[in-house]
């Protein structure tokens, strides 16, 4: 993922050690100087995200990474990034929580990522890769979306993706010098009017206007950037919805179920915000049951239920504390709901 960021033209990385994402920090420590980028091991996650705020304002493709407890500390900075319309990529290699929890894979940060987390009326694009190959693509995409809409983008992965190995192919590296210019960036007011990056607007009418304009952009994102993957849904009578690692595990469950004659399909949301409400709404007219599976006590399931309403049953199956469901565990839930 770190190399994918470099490929995408990222030339500034700021981080603070936390397991299970130290590999990104350590990789960037060696690699960033080699490509002429900036690397700082900050004194805290609060400092790291604010270094991002500065580097992004200066016009450079910028990234930070952490894991759940550290992401909590970054939330203040993310609110400021969103409010100042600054692009930035934030990788969360999520772990068991709340509090210190443990370092096993978990999906308990969905609410924090998709429903705010920091203060104020803001949104952040949230992308959930299921495999390392997807993570590579998604990191590249994250930088493009962040620049295009001037928003922070989070890649919400988990410790399993962080520990796994599988072969990958990297795309052609982007030359940061050839990226579209950022006329809003702080580059020195020579021969132009000064730029100001700020989230402060004392007059309520001003803040209202600025916020409304930003909301218009959010609506565009909702219209154009929804991404998801459907597997074997066309003739399905029952569907699993899962993202990230769980989606990948469920792909095997689909094969197992099909070999037993159960017409199981899978929907994997890739953008967790904007959430793929429409395809789920459509499916809810076709199938009887839509099971949400998460490594949490049930967070994304709230969005699934918003999409489905009462057109289909929407049971939930979750593992807590960093336990990972196996393909058979998910199959058992499917069988229970078929009979």
């Amino acid at each position: 993922m770190a190399e994918a960021a470099i490929c995408a033209g990222c030339r500034a990385y700021f981080g603070y050690p936390i397991t299970p994402q130290n590999e990104i920090l350590e990789y960037m420590a060696a690699r960033m100087p080699a490509v002429g980028g900036a690397f700082v091991q900050a004194e805290s996650e609060v400092a790291a995200i604010n270094m991002c705020y500065g580097a992004s304002a200066a016009g450079v493709r910028t990234m930070t990474s952490s894991s759940s407890p550290g992401i909590s500390l970054k939330m203040e900075g993310i609110s400021y990034l969103a409010a100042a319309d600054l692009p930035c990529v934030i990788i969360n290699v999520a772990r068991g929580g709340p509090g210190l929890g443990n370092i096993a894979p978990a999906q308990g940060d969905y609410f924090q990522a998709t429903k705010g987390g920091g203060h104020g009326d803001y949104r952040m694009i949230v992308l959930g890769p299921a495999t390392i190959a997807e993570a590579i693509e998604i990191v590249m995409l994250a930088f493009d979306l962040a620049d295009k809409y001037r928003v922070p983008v989070m890649v919400l992965s988990d410790g399993m993706l962080g520990q796994m190995m599988e072969p990958i192919k990297l795309a052609e590296p982007v030359d940061p010098g050839l990226l579209p210019a950022k006329p809003w960036a702080l580059t020195g007011a020579s021969g132009r009017r000064p730029n100001a990056v700020t989230s402060y607007a004392m007059d309520p009418r001003d803040l209202n206007r600025i916020n409304t304009k930003r909301q218009t952009r959010y609506r565009q994102i909702e219209e154009k950037e929804v991404r998801y993957r459907e597997t074997e849904t066309s003739d399905a009578t029952i569907v699993v919805v899962a993202y990230g690692t769980v989606a990948r595990i469920a792909r095997t469950t689909v094969k197992m179920a099909r070999s037993q004659g159960i017409k199981l399909g899978l929907v994997q949301p890739i953008t967790l915000w904007p959430f793929p409400y429409a395809p789920l709404r459509a499916l809810s007219n076709q199938v009887n049951t839509i099971i949400t599976v998460e490594m949490s006590a049930g967070q994304m399931v709230e969005d699934v239920r918003l999409a489905v309403c009462d057109r289909a049953e929407t049971p939930f199956y979750g593992e807590l504390g960093g336990l990972v469901p196996t393909p058979k565990d998910i199959l058992r839930e499917v069988q229970r709901n078929v009979s």
């Binding site: 050690p17 936390i18 397991t19 130290n22 920090l25 350590e26 420590a29 060696a30 091991q41």
Partner: peptide, 22 residues
């Protein structure tokens, strides 16, 4: 940083190698 596997600390000596200052 012991627990997280040997990254640089604010107290790391100048020139000392760690996983985040290789």
């Amino acid at each position: 940083y012991g627990m997280t596997g040997g990254q640089m600390a604010p107290t790391t000596l100048v020139g000392q190698r760690t996983t985040s200052c290789p």
